[in-house]
Computed example of a mutant assay.
Amino acid sequence: MIRISLEEGVQILRLDRPEKKNALTGAMYTDLADALEAGNTDPDIRCHLICGHPEVFTAGNDIGDFLQYAGKVAVADTPVVRFLRALVRTEKPLVASVDGLAIGVGTTLLMHCDMVFASPRAFIRSPFVDLGLVPEAGSSLLGPQLMGHARAFELLCLGNPLTAEKAERLGLVNEIVEDNVDETALNCANQIASKPPEAMALSRKLLKGDTGALSERVEEEIRIFADRLTAPETIAAFQAFMSKKKA
């Protein structure tokens, strides 16, 4: 589930499924999308903070849950895709607190954040190609912009993990926090929320620039991702992954 609270202008979105390493279900994606979309029109929400639990931010998609959704509706209509679109359209600043695993979408959503704080045990990885898939959330565009082609290839195509230290060097993480990363992230979110909201929104929009190309890339990734789900090598990779989980 997603635990949602509003404290002094900060909407806290806590991923709360620790028994499954915070793997995201369709219902959780729906809650996240609802919250981000609400922030665009609610003046009481001045900043979003996404966090998880000690040692786990999120293990990414719950693959079994996703395949159930994908089998019933077009991929473009799934809750995860609604969440990805909401990320692009989010108008309020977004802060993340990462402790432990940040896998798949747990990595790519960080590229949309304005501030990212990580504990020393953060483990950032995107195994899309290993599953016969392609990067999502616009990461195929944002990754090279953020860290250069070679480093983005290493993360998004090779699937090599990033430590907190390496992620900080590459610009994916703002600060490594030794103790209580959530508190530090919340303090930052409170600082953002305390500033003049219109000036903050306009300044963020200037920094982000035109998001048209990003929206187009997200849609292109969605189309390719959907096609890949029926590719023989993807089916084989998913079967191997699910067998390994059951073992």
Rank of each mutant, 00 (worst) to 15 (best):
V81W: 10
V181C: 10
M147K: 11
V177T: 04
A118Q: 00
L6S: 02
G209P: 06
I103K: 06
G209I: 04
I45F: 03
Q68H: 15
R151W: 15
F66Y: 13
D130K: 14
D42C: 09
I103Q: 10
D42E: 14
A137M: 13
V116P: 01
A231M: 09
K20Q: 14
K92D: 02
L67H: 09
V95E: 04
E136T: 13
G106A: 04
I224D: 13
L49D: 00
S194E: 12
T41D: 13
E136F: 11
A226L: 06
D16L: 01
L155C: 00
E168I: 02
L15R: 04
I63Y: 09
P232C: 07
E220G: 05
E219P: 05
Y69W: 15
E175T: 09
G159V: 01
E165V: 11
P197F: 01
V88H: 04
E178D: 11
K20M: 15
A189Q: 02
P196C: 07
R228N: 13
R151L: 13
P93I: 05
G138C: 11
V75F: 13
K205P: 08
A35M: 07
F238K: 09
A137K: 08
L141Y: 09
G143P: 08
E55L: 10
P135D: 06
A247C: 13
